[in-house]
Design a protein around this nucleic acid. Structure first.
Lengths: 155, 155
DNA sequence: TATTGTTATACTCTATAACTATA
DNA sequence: TATAGTTATAGAGTATAACAATA
């Protein structure tokens, strides 16, 4: 309960004026991203995966044997930053790097059995997360519309 | 131009399968945020402001004299992280912290004249950025719809 | 020469805990 | 006791430059 006083010397604790930025796509996207991360981590806490890590596992599962740089590129992650990400997933025994027969520069990426197993758990978390989004948005039509608008903006 | 070869030993460089995550709100939001930051920095390079810094300046301009913690809270930034942000803006002579008469714990935030002046430039950058968004989204109706859906998701 | 993976580095943003001085 | 600002620390994410091995 907030304390109400009759007189103010300097700083009345009224609601702040947010009109200038509340209509701003930039500001709302900044705020939304913070919320998104928190909510994602909540749903994915059981598998202990960050958004990026989940995308990597899902992408490797759909495209086993692809090169690091291919997976990185399609996810919009730079090669240099992808290395420590893969090191981490490999240390957790979720993925492995195999040699490519005719190109000794490349590493082909695969999920390990426990990587597959964790991904299955993660997919259930993802389904819950998506169901949450669906409910907040108000149905599949709104969800598709949102994704379509997001794609127009940043696709 | 991509090189096309007739035979593959191991790794045909075909398009990757992205079907599993392309329908995912989580994945699309992750990608969108990266694009958003880059595009924002492009438009705001003339004033050298990050999304967070712009929001802070705009919020102080609309609510001069408010306490650090009030501005931080309304922007969803933690007090602890807000300190270095304000230190930075103050070093750039864009904002100032003044004492509050009846509460020696608090700092009241104000824009300096050069802060006001930079904010005016930033508002032009923001207008350009928003115009870009508007065009990509396909008009004000789509823009309002997008903001409404974003608010449903994370408001 | 170009590509693949890698290392190193730096900066932004976020999260948490704890301190200080005030209230 | 609670609040405002602060300090310190840690981790994710991103950006850039450069290097070795290989193509």
């Amino acid at each position: 309960m907030e304390k109400i006083s009759e007189t103010y010397d300097t700083c009345p604790s009224e609601a702040l004026n947010v009109s200038a930025i509340s209509q701003s796509v930039a500001h709302q996207l900044r705020r939304a991203h913070g919320q998104f991360i928190q909510r994602f981590l909540h749903y994915f806490s059981v598998v202990n995966l960050r958004p990026t890590e989940y995308s990597v596992l899902a992408m490797i599962a759909e495209n086993p044997g692809r090169k690091q740089s291919e997976i990185a590129a399609v996810l919009g992650i730079q090669r240099a930053n992808f290395v420590s990400l893969m090191n981490d997933l490999e240390e957790r025994c979720l993925t492995e790097r195999r040699n490519v027969p005719n190109d000794r520069r490349s590493h082909a990426l695969y999920l390990t059995p426990s990587g597959e197993s964790l991904l299955n758990e993660a997919r259930r978390a993802e389904a819950d997360f998506e169901a949450d989004c669906l409910e907040r948005l108000g149905g599949m039509r709104a969800r598709d519309q949102f994704l379509a608008l997001l794609a127009r903006l940043f696709g």
